[in-house]
Amino acid sequence: MSGKLFWFSVAVLLGIAVHISYVLFVPRIQMDAKMSEFTKLAGINHLMVVQPDKLESVLPDADPSLAHAICVFDLSAGPIVVKAMVPTAYWLISFYAPNGDGFYSLNNRQADVRNLNLMVVNKSNGTNGDSSPDALEGTDNQITVRSPSIRGLVVLRARIAAPAMLARVQADLAASNCVPAS
C-alpha cells in the first residue's frame, strides 16, 4: 500500500468513527447534561415554572407561544404523581426518559377533565414487563404512566393566547404539582 493511500484510509476510517460517534453519543451526552441542569434548577420531584427570560437556556428553541413547567422525577423511592390542573385552552403534558425519548404525552382535549392525576411508575415493576402499554387508563381523572427509566422529565406546556395572559397561564401551570405518591 502506498503511503498516500495509507494516510487516506486512516483519515476515512477516523472520519467514519467520528461520524458514528457523533450521531450515537453526542445526543446522549447532551441530554445527560440537560438532565443535570434540570435537576439543579428544579430539584427532584418538584414542578418549576420556567420564566420566559430563562426559556432559551432551559429549553433551547422551545416555542415562546407556550408557557412551560418542568419536573425531574425519580422513582427510586416509589411512584410519583403529577397532579395536573388542566386549562380549557391548549395544554400538553409530555414525559421523557433521560436519553430524550418521549414515552407519553396528553393534551387537554384528550384529557377532557379539569383535574388529572398521572401516577408514574417504573415500567420494570409492571407485571407484564416491557409489553405493558405506556399508559393505563384508570378512572376519568386517573392515569398510570409507565416510565422506561427510574428518572425522567415531565414537561407541562400551556398556550399563551396573548402576552397579557402570561401571568395567568403560568399560574395555571404552577397550580399543578409533581410529588411522591405515598
Partner: peptide
C-alpha cells in the same frame, strides 16, 4: 437532542 431540544410526539 445534540442542541438540547426535546422532541414532541
Amino acid at each position: 437532542l445534540a442542541a438540547g431540544r426535546l422532541v414532541d410526539n
